[in-house]
Nucleic acid binder design. Sequence first.
DNA 1: TTTGATAATGAACGCCCGTTCAGTTAGCGT
DNA 2: ACGCTAACTGAACGGGCGTTCATTATCAAA
Lengths: 196, 196
Amino acid sequence: MARKTGSHSEITGPKIRAEAQRLFARHGFAAVSMRQIAAAVGVQAGALYLYTSDKEALLFDLLKTHMDELIAAWRAEAPAGAEPLAALEAFVRFHIRFNLERAEVVFLSYMELRNLSEENFAVIEGLRKTYETELEQILMAGQAAGVFLIPDTKLATMAIIAMLTGVNTWYREGGRLSRATVADIYWDMVRKAVGA
Amino acid sequence: MARKTGSHSEITGPKIRAEAQRLFARHGFAAVSMRQIAAAVGVQAGALYLYTSDKEALLFDLLKTHMDELIAAWRAEAPAGAEPLAALEAFVRFHIRFNLERAEVVFLSYMELRNLSEENFAVIEGLRKTYETELEQILMAGQAAGVFLIPDTKLATMAIIAMLTGVNTWYREGGRLSRATVADIYWDMVRKAVGA
DNA sequence: TTTGATAATGAACGCCCGTTCAGTTAGCGT
DNA sequence: ACGCTAACTGAACGGGCGTTCATTATCAAA
């Protein structure tokens, strides 16, 4: 017993995060025990504490990494200096694609925020606000340019994000529509909703 | 000790449901113990079992009651034989108002479904589907009448409901906008989204 | 081949969990 | 005033929880 043959932190570390993400998404943070995560990884519970300070830090790490990657991915592919209409279309398609690709952690980031400490919650909320602002700025630019007709850009931001994120609740691989078709249809509805 | 002065099941029963709803919504089903609920009510944990068979039944009862009341309330106030446009407007305003009035249990019904047994989950899912169908039929009628221009009524149904329910995540009493104003703005966006 | 760092064990800590039940008190019709 | 029933207590059940730590086996550099 003790150290196992072929054991390395570069393997065990990611494995712990992956299994924690999977289990948290499936059963909920509070309903999953450290012993369950350890069993899924193939170690004893005590070994997890070589990789995380406590259970909440494990959740926070998953959410923080996700939000950072979400914002970075959008900024990397957002069309620089594009017309508001093209920028909005890019955002809609990006949001649907990215969130469907990472359904587990997206689910977590909507469901398990209340299990974070006050400070950690504030960090994630801040990153979410940052992401939302990216959309709101597109809407404001379009409104200013007369391309969009929006009664309230703040509400439109929340409405569009809720609508797009909602795809994750019903979309199933191999269903009636492909991801691309879903994105087409949602883009049509969003475009009309902002009066363009 | 034992029975308390002035104790009645017609008082304790609702009190248990109210406190359970409040605590489940605030901390999550799995994170709330029967002892916490009992303490909030002012009884010992064992007394809860005079009112519920187990913890899950307590949650199911809250969700089932809510869904029944949601559907009944909509059917009671849905304009009979109205034009699709008027029916859709009524639905939008109803959904926002009803969900804001019952924010706690609405939150529960979106977050805690996975804590139900398979059979209980199916019951709630069925009721949700029933409610969604009410909206979809309005959309189909409007589409058939040429009043709406919707690429896919199923997706439009999910999109609209996600968008409307999203109000609950950001709306705070005493904020910038009144409930009525929020409903006005959302109705404007929904109307445009369906091409009317 | 030795040796220090790394990765993991497994037992233990105190604590809380959902649920049951024999016993006790209050309400209330007679 | 009595007696039955409804309401609740408090202790107990077996079990799981997050976390710590002394110990041990493996890895990798010298």
